[in-house]
Amino acid sequence: MAEWLREVSVGDWYESAGERFEIVGVDAKTEIVLVQYYDGALDEYDFDSWAELEARPCAPPEDLRGALDAEREDFGLEERVAASDESSDPVGWLESHGL
């Protein structure tokens, strides 16, 4: 087994050529490393290609919505309005409604 393989784990983030990706699978039997880029694209590298890639560990992105390719509006959610008296006192609201 390749020595570098001991350092690669599913869930680790790497960067190569300015692109970040996450390891989503490692198959030692078929000698394949499966990755998912931030935008959701999937790719695989055989062990030789992985070594040539010279990928370096990096921190995961702060916003992991890249793979979802969706915005808040896509879910039909409206921006939250300023808190009203009812939302600032949920217990009082429940009591006033007999709940």
Rank of each mutant, 00 (worst) to 15 (best):
G40N: 10
F47I: 02
E52C: 06
S49I: 06
D74P: 01
E52D: 13
D39L: 11
S49Q: 12
Y37V: 01
D69V: 12
A59N: 10
I32R: 15
A67M: 10
L34M: 10
A59I: 07
V33Y: 06
E71C: 03
A55S: 08
E73W: 12
D63V: 09
D27Y: 08
W50D: 03
K29Q: 14
K29I: 14
A51Q: 11
V35L: 13
Y37E: 08
V35Y: 06
K29V: 15
D39I: 09
S49R: 13
Y37M: 13
A70Y: 06
Q36E: 15
P57E: 02
D63M: 01
W50I: 11
E52Y: 03
E62G: 15
A55V: 01
L68K: 04
E54A: 11
R72Q: 09
T30W: 08
D46M: 01
D63F: 03
V33F: 06
E44H: 15
V35N: 04
I32S: 01
R65E: 08
F47K: 04
V26H: 05
V35G: 05
L42E: 08
E52F: 04
Y38G: 02
T30R: 15
E54T: 03
D74Y: 04
D39C: 07
A55D: 03
V26A: 01
S49A: 15
L42R: 08
D46V: 04
V33L: 08
S49N: 09
A41L: 11
D48Y: 07
L68F: 07
D46I: 02
A67V: 09
L64Q: 09
F75M: 10
A70D: 00
A67S: 14
P61Y: 01
R72A: 13
A28W: 12
D69E: 14
E44Q: 15
Y45P: 00
T30H: 12
P61I: 04
E71Q: 14
A51K: 13
R65W: 04
P57V: 01
V33G: 01
F75D: 04
P60S: 12
K29C: 07
D48L: 10
A55E: 02
L64M: 11
D63T: 08
R56N: 05
G40E: 09
D39N: 14
Y45R: 07
F75P: 02
Y45N: 05
A59C: 04
A59M: 11
A67C: 11
D46W: 00
C58M: 12
Y45G: 01
Y45C: 08
L34P: 00
A67Y: 00
E31H: 14
A51R: 12
D27P: 02
D63Y: 02
A67T: 11
Y37K: 11
A59F: 07
R65M: 09
D74A: 08
F75L: 15
D69G: 15
I32D: 04
D48T: 05
A67D: 06
D46E: 01
Y38F: 15
A41D: 03
D48N: 03
D46R: 10
A28G: 09
P60Y: 11
E54I: 00
K29L: 14
G66N: 07
A51F: 06
L34Y: 14
K29P: 05
S49W: 00
C58Y: 12
E54S: 11
